[in-house]
């Protein structure tokens, strides 16, 4: 009895394995060239499967025909499976597309706010004269979601005291970066809650 059960068990395991292999190969493949824009692939899929744009209508039609013949029923089921599986992949594709768009929008927002902050600091920073050496100093800023500067510290001072002093003087002139108010809270927390300002003197006579 045990032997029978073991052999049955083995048989089902093999069957499960084979079905898994089969199901893997039965998924349609999307050959998306990484160098290509995902939009192109999405467009191609739309061209190939116009039906995808009206899935409820297609489903209704299939259901009516299913009542007539079992042969047709089988065919329809197969089509449906195919459509659904394709639809699933396209949903993933759309999701990717949305993520990409969202990411590019986030990037755009970060760049926009960064550029404004850069411009505002530049307009008040009175850079010391005659610096023929290359200098770099880093300031860590801690912002409230309202844009208020909660704290700042010169975490990496340069070797030149006047250069450092000029930075601290400029930072003391700033109280708010209200530009961050236009950002989504999640984006603010991720990028602007704490950020660095890197002050540089090119080492050229300026």
């Amino acid at each position: 009895m045990n032997k029978v059960l073991t052999s049955l068990n083995t048989f089902f395991l093999i069957l499960l394995f084979l079905s898994l292999i089969f199901s893997m190969f039965s998924f349609p493949k999307l050959n998306i060239d990484e160098t290509q824009s995902i939009k192109v692939n999405f467009y191609e899929l739309i061209q190939q499967n116009d039906i995808l744009f009206d899935p409820p209508a297609a489903n209704t039609l299939i259901k009516k025909e299913a009542k007539k013949t079992s042969a047709i029923n089988e065919k329809t089921n197969a089509d449906e499976t195919s459509i659904i599986s394709k639809f699933k992949i396209n949903k993933l594709d759309i999701k990717n597309e949305i993520t990409k768009i969202k990411l590019s929008k986030e990037r755009e927002d970060i760049l926009r706010v960064s550029a404004i902050i850069q411009q505002r600091i530049s307009s008040i920073w009175i850079k010391p004269n005659s610096l023929s050496e290359s200098l770099i100093a880093k300031v860590l800023i801690n912002l409230a979601p309202s844009g208020e500067i909660l704290n700042f510290s010169l975490i990496e001072p340069s070797s030149n005291t006047s250069f450092n002093e000029s930075i601290l003087t400029a930072m003391n002139k700033m109280t708010f970066f209200e530009e961050v108010l236009s950002l989504e809270r999640k984006l603010f927390e991720k990028n602007f809650r704490n950020f660095n300002l890197v002050f540089k003197s090119s080492g050229e006579i300026e």
């Binding site: 530049s122 990028n191 950020f195 660095n196 540089k200």
Partner: peptide, 15 residues
């Protein structure tokens, strides 16, 4: 990773 904004240009204003 933390956002870093570079400041290269100073103001044309005088103290």
């Amino acid at each position: 990773s933390i956002l870093e904004i570079e400041i290269l240009k100073g103001s044309d204003n005088l103290s």
